[in-house]
Simulated assay, not measured.
Amino acid sequence: MNVLLIEDEDLAVRKLSKLLTEIDGSIDIVGKAASVQESVDFLKNNPAPDLILMDIELADGQSFEIFEQVIVESPVIFTTSYDEYALRAFKVNSIDYLLKPIKRQELEASLAKYNRLTKGTDHEADKSSRNLDLEAIDSLVRQLRQQIQPTEYRKRFLVKHLQQWIPIEVTDIAYFYSEEGTSLFKSRNNQKFSVDYTLDELEKMLDPDSFFRANRQYIIGVQCVAQINPYFNNKIKLMLNPAPDSEVIISREKASDFKKWLGK
């Protein structure tokens, strides 16, 4: 199997090369590229390798740019330091990803997946499989772009207080809630303010590491959770600080996600 390594860290290249040859002695590393430009040059001037292992962040940009400059005719395994949760949905066709630092067992699984997909295919079947791979790569590139671009979450809200407008930092907000069709929030020092957004709109503005949509009425901040109590039918009842005007109940369907969020 001919493999191209696209990786800008020398140590990572050495470790990956060693792992590959240990796993399969027949693997021939036909090229190494540390940048977008080197990768494009290699792919334009050499036969397509059987497989490419490609880091997302390269010396001169992101590897997505490679696909914009040359047709990539090989299955790709992406390597990345980005959070696994954000990328786990992208294991499609022969495309895979490996989270750094790369573990031998995971690399073996990726290579085994590649072998299963290519074993015993004739020329036409292999061509068809490759077309599927290219479609999947195109889809993956678009989705990864969206996932790893830094997201700008709301930092503050401008609210009316008495006869003036004042900025409130998001870090000073305990939770948002809905009351009689109006969206409000309580600050951590128990002041109440209204905002001109629905809870659905607010949910998209807020950092999901800091805020959780508890139910249709509440979006709670991580620092306002004072106590978690079991409730009937596997639900959860929350005690918040400052105290809310109504009970905050998390459904049993959301209970698991809530616990994971709070335990990050």
Rank of each mutant, 00 (worst) to 15 (best):
N2L: 01
E7K: 10
E7L: 12
L11G: 09
V13Y: 02
L16K: 03
S17L: 00
L19M: 15
L19E: 10
E22Q: 14
D28S: 14
K32S: 08
A34Y: 01
S35H: 12
V40S: 02
F42Y: 15
N45P: 07
N45I: 04
P49N: 03
M54S: 08
D55R: 13
I56K: 02
D60R: 11
S63C: 13
S63G: 14
S63P: 15
F64G: 08
F64K: 08
I66V: 15
F67H: 08
F67R: 02
Q69C: 03
V70Y: 05
V70N: 11
V70A: 09
T79Q: 15
S81N: 11
Y82S: 08
Y82A: 10
Y82N: 11
E84I: 01
E84N: 15
L87W: 01
R88Q: 11
K91G: 02
I95L: 15
Y97K: 06
L98K: 08
L111T: 03
L111E: 03
A112I: 06
A112W: 01
K113C: 04
D122M: 01
H123G: 06
H123C: 10
D126F: 14
K127Q: 13
S128H: 13
D133Y: 01
L134E: 11
I137N: 14
S139Q: 08
L140G: 11
R142V: 09
I148F: 03
Y153R: 04
R154M: 10
R154S: 06
K155V: 04
K155H: 08
F157Y: 15
L158N: 11
V159M: 09
K160Y: 01
L162F: 05
L162Q: 15
V170R: 04
T171E: 15
A174C: 05
S178F: 00
G181W: 03
T182N: 13
K186F: 08
K186V: 04
S187C: 02
S187K: 02
R188S: 12
F193S: 09
S194Q: 12
L199V: 04
E203F: 06
M205H: 14
M205T: 07
D207H: 06
P208M: 09
F211H: 04
A214C: 05
N215W: 07
R216S: 11
Q217P: 00
Y218G: 05
I220W: 03
G221C: 08
A226G: 08
P230Y: 01
I236F: 02
L240S: 07
N241F: 03
A243S: 07
A243H: 04
A243T: 06
D245N: 06
S246W: 00
V248E: 12
I250H: 12
R252E: 03
K254L: 12
A255C: 10
S256Y: 05
W261G: 02
